[in-house]
Design a protein around this nucleic acid. Structure first.
Lengths: 115, 115
DNA sequence: CACGGTTATATTCATTCGGATATATCGACT
DNA sequence: AGTCGATATATCCGAATGAATATAACCGTG
């Protein structure tokens, strides 16, 4: 069954979608960029690049990282980061429920034409 | 100002978003794949590849093309194609209006953190 | 002070993607 | 029959993308 997938366009060439949002959630959950990357089966480099891109994109950092320390360091979401995640999920839920009837109608129209 | 951008996930690895939908609209408007491609500043190959992908994706063709003839041929949307376009736009509108307040709230939260 | 685990960053390589190009086919019209 | 403009399709090449690898820096703790 078809499902919605939505992203937000910012600035001229900056967008944020399900992938980056999930990465932020994983970072929040594990307290570390590398742990999040491992858990998402993604290279640390890629995860770090995405975080960097988001930090640049929003003007303010969405992830605050510390180097060194007993556990080598870590990373948490900033207030902006937390706000972005929760707002994005809220937007997703709202859009999904608003589009639901159109989605099932579309599905029916495609299935009908299959005959 | 940020704006929404949404796509529909079908099957395992098939998605349709604003780009393909706009291409379909242009084909409907011009009655030709190549005219649509020119108007969208896209190579004919790319446009044709996208159309082919969509035809395969939906099981039934979304574009019906004729070769030859006084004007060389042409292409129109099938019933499925038309339904997809109009449903997609409807879903877009519904999602946009449902998400609007969350969007402005998000914008405000980001702007506030900029200080 | 060395260790460990993480952040931070550069470099190289393979793969994918799209653009460019070329060519064949088709059929109404002159 | 020949022209024209569009579809249909293959091939080649450069650019962009992401994976892999390597390495430096950082700092609490033993």
């Amino acid at each position: 069954m078809p499902s919605l997938s939505l992203r937000i366009n910012l600035d001229p060439e900056g967008r944020i979608g399900p992938g980056k949002i999930e990465l932020l959630e994983q970072i929040a959950a594990f307290g570390s960029i590398s742990a999040a990357a491992r858990n998402m089966d993604m290279s640390y480099k890629r995860a770090w690049d995405l975080v960097e891109e988001m930090n640049r994109l929003f003007g303010k950092p969405v992830v605050a990282a510390q180097t060194g320390g007993r556990k080598g360091g870590g990373a948490q979401l900033t207030a902006v980061g937390l706000a972005i995640v929760s707002r994005f999920r809220a937007i997703e839920r709202a859009a999904e429920s608003a589009a639901q009837q159109h989605m099932t109608a579309l599905q029916a129209e495609i299935a009908a034409a299959q005959i």
